[in-house]
Amino acid sequence: MHQLRQIIWVEWVKSRKSKVVWITFFAFTMLPLMGGFFMFVLKHPEFAEQAGLLGAKAQLAGSADWPSYFMMLSQGIGIGGLFIFGFFTSWIFGREYTDRTVKDLLALPFPRTYVAIAKFIIVLLWSVLVTLWVACIGFLIGWMIGLPEWSTEVLQHGLFVLSITSVLTILLSTPVALFACLGRGYLAPLGFVIITMILSQIIAAIGYGSYFPWAIPALFSNVNGGGNILEVASVIVLLLTSSIGFIGTLGYWRYADQN
């Protein structure tokens, strides 16, 4: 356990010193900013009239209140999180191949799978941190705009949906890690992330989103207006996908030839 803590520390230092991680982190600040801007436009119809098309787009966010704003943040995490968390994962796993540093992690006095586990923990950590960051900025912007309908129930429900959506999205990072290993870099997993995002839109549109893992977080966040529903089958499909990614990645680190 002490050894694993040391490796987690190493992975933390590596990611903390990486510009890519920080750029990704702050890029996601766009989510509460855009959400807040839409709320502002909806709250000020005179501004919406001047803004024309922008005002029409803002209507898609619903009404200018805290429940709508929370829902928008959750949907942003359910869709944008796939990309942002996927980017963290692609970088943290793929950079070892791109920077050719992977060979320095293979013949060390601890099981190789520890490295993969430590990396997953760091992906989880960054994903949670960026979610908290988005939530905090979201609160600040919502408060600054002066959104109505604030209550403890609204806050609890909003945070519940936000948290579950984040967890579901984070769980989908594991197949990205597997693609980073198989593709030996960060381009292949990024391609995978983009494809899953496109497919999730298409499959959700034809009505099978509940069975497509990458569409499930967004559906849960009520992106289609069907409520915050999570079917058992969806949970099973998502957990199965995540497990395949996790076990596959660990298996790759343990068994695959590292040429």
């Binding site: 002490h2 050894q3 040391q6 490796i7 520390w9 190493v10 230092v13 590596k14 010193k17 990486s18 510009k19 920077d99 050719r100 540093t101 060979k103 320095d104 992690l105 060390l108 006095p109």
Partner: peptide
């Protein structure tokens, strides 16, 4: 093994600190 590579954004000392931790 082959050409050595280090973490490019870390300093020489930080790269060696990492090896220290990995080897406990």
């Amino acid at each position: 093994v082959e050409t050595p590579y280090a973490y490019p954004e870390l300093t020489v000392k930080e790269n060696l600190d990492i090896t220290m931790h990995l080897r406990q």
